[in-house]
């Protein structure tokens, strides 16, 4: 299988980047997209060129480290997957594949396809936790949590923090990410005591980081590898209003 990659190359965050073209042969349909890039990098090394920098770690769709914009879609042409779960069988022989880094003011490019997503960590820092020191927990079954509550918390807790929601959003909004964490913790009884504080502080940090606002295009829930629903954003708005009124 033979494809033409058009890949964003950029030395570091202070330099300008540009798309560069690479023709790659010898790929197979079984290869994952990242393995195809690995293959390209080996060819580049042998040609005495610098390798393309891109991120990955677990390569099974859970760590959230990989993520690039492939042919006009976050994580590539399929819905609800990560870049590492994309395989070359999704492309045709002779295809041109355009690969770009996530684009958002809050996600500056560090090199080539690697962006800095530490803004997410800073949002988490502002209350994306339950204040409970090690050693202070009551018996696990002492607080009953109905299955529906636990299940819906799990639905959003599944967020892998890859940033596809921000990448695909025309406004670079981090609303889906923030709402996932807020709803996970605020809906559990353990998270109730800090609920009002949490939703205000985390969303405030989201604003400080320079993310845009949500237009409910719904693109994020289509690209989210965990399929987290945008109704969570609405739920976050409700929690925010409640916190402002009664918090």
């Amino acid at each position: 299988m033979k494809v033409t990659f058009k890949i964003w190359r950029q030395e570091n965050r202070n330099t300008k980047g540009a798309i560069k073209e690479y023709k790659v042969d010898g790929l197979t349909e079984d290869m994952s997209f990242l393995e195809a890039l690995d293959h390209l990098n080996e060819l580049l090394v042998l040609k005495n060129e610098k390798v393309i920098a891109y991120e990955y770690d677990c390569r099974e769709g859970i760590c959230g480290q990989c993520g690039v914009f492939i042919n006009g879609r976050a994580h590539g042409p399929h819905d609800n997957i990560t870049t590492c779960q994309l395989h070359m069988r999704s492309f045709k022989d002779g295809d041109t594949i355009v690969v770009e880094p996530w684009r958002a003011a809050s996600f500056p490019v560090l090199k080539d396809l690697i962006v800095d997503r530490s803004a997410f960590d800073r949002i988490m820092e502002q209350g994306g936790y339950i204040t409970a020191k090690t050693g202070t927990a009551p018996e696990a079954n002492a607080i009953l949590i109905p299955k529906e509550v636990s299940d819906s918390a799990m639905d959003v807790a599944a967020c892998i923090g890859c940033g596809a929601c921000v990448a695909t959003c025309k406004n670079a909004s981090a609303a889906l990410f923030a709402s996932a964490k807020i709803n996970h913790l605020n809906n559990l009884p353990q998270g109730h005591p800090e609920a009002h504080k949490r939703v205000q502080e985390m969303t405030y940090q989201m604003e400080l980081e320079g993310f845009g606002s949500c237009s409910f295009t719904g693109a994020c829930e289509v690209e989210c590898p965990e399929g987290i629903s945008i109704t969570n954003i609405a739920e976050m708005y409700a929690k925010y209003t409640k916190a402002k009124l009664f918090g």
Binding site: K6, N71, R73, D79, V98, E100, T217, A219
Partner: peptide, 14 residues
């Protein structure tokens, strides 16, 4: 918040 646009963006798919 989104100063740089994508070269290719198939937003109609999502």
């Amino acid at each position: 918040a989104k100063p740089q646009k994508y070269v290719v963006n198939h937003f109609l798919q999502n």
